[in-house]
Simulated assay, not measured.
Amino acid sequence: MSDWIAANYDVLRGVHILAIIAWMAGLLYLPRLFAYHTGAAPGSELDVTFQTMEGKLLRIIMNPAMAVAWILGLTLLWHRYNLAGAAVFAQPWLIAKLAGVIFVTGWHHYLALARKAFARGENKKSQKFWRATNELPFLAAIVMVIAVTTEFGSR
């Protein structure tokens, strides 16, 4: 299996990046939908439309993209571990990336819970909150991309 991963490493990494792009698009768009949804009266036609959009975004794009990103990320990490041993986990760049992954995964789940609250007509957050938090995943992405592309602390 490790030989197959090594032979296809660049393809796996490319698909991993594509999954992250799709996931990130959803993480950036869903809070924006929530900001607009905040103004819709519960049970109104607009409320139902936003619920449909939010639900499909999560089920069709975000959840599968997150799953693929995690599966391929762990596969690529396993390959690096096989090459470098446990020392790879002490690299500052990898620690920063893993912290970012945990953050965006937690944010994803927070957004999924918020979508359920909207569906129940129980949103407690303001439009201002959703607009202010909209960019959090992108800030995490900046840190992760810089960490991975520079591999800071490994030289």
Rank of each mutant, 00 (worst) to 15 (best):
M1P: 11
I5R: 01
N8V: 12
D10W: 12
V11Q: 08
L12Y: 05
I17D: 06
I20K: 01
A22F: 15
A22Y: 10
M24W: 02
M24D: 09
A25K: 01
A25F: 05
Y29A: 06
L30D: 03
P31H: 13
P31N: 14
R32M: 04
Y36S: 12
Y36N: 08
H37P: 02
A40L: 00
A40T: 03
A41D: 03
P42C: 08
P42W: 04
G43L: 12
G43P: 12
E45P: 01
E45Q: 07
E45T: 04
L46T: 06
D47P: 07
D47A: 07
D47I: 11
D47E: 02
V48Q: 13
V48P: 03
T49D: 06
F50P: 08
Q51V: 06
Q51S: 13
Q51R: 13
T52E: 14
G55E: 05
K56V: 11
L57G: 12
R59K: 14
A67I: 15
V68K: 05
W70V: 15
L72H: 07
L72W: 15
L74K: 03
W78M: 07
H79V: 06
H79E: 11
H79G: 08
H79L: 08
Y81L: 08
Y81E: 06
N82R: 10
L83W: 10
G85L: 13
V88K: 10
V88Q: 05
Q91N: 04
Q91F: 07
P92L: 09
I95M: 07
I95R: 04
A96T: 14
A96C: 15
A99M: 05
G100N: 08
I102F: 14
F103K: 05
F103S: 02
G106H: 04
G106M: 13
G106V: 08
A112L: 07
A114Y: 02
R115Q: 13
K116W: 11
K116A: 14
K116Y: 11
A117S: 10
F118D: 04
R120I: 10
R120M: 00
R120V: 02
E122I: 07
E122V: 05
E122K: 09
N123F: 00
N123Y: 05
K124C: 01
S126D: 10
Q127E: 01
Q127Y: 00
K128T: 04
F129P: 08
N134H: 10
E135C: 01
P137M: 09
P137D: 09
A141M: 14
A141Y: 09
I142M: 01
V143I: 09
M144K: 13
V145Q: 09
V145Y: 10
A147W: 14
A147H: 11
A147P: 06
T149S: 13
T149G: 02
T150F: 11
T150L: 04
F152N: 09
G153D: 14
S154T: 12
S154H: 09
R155H: 15
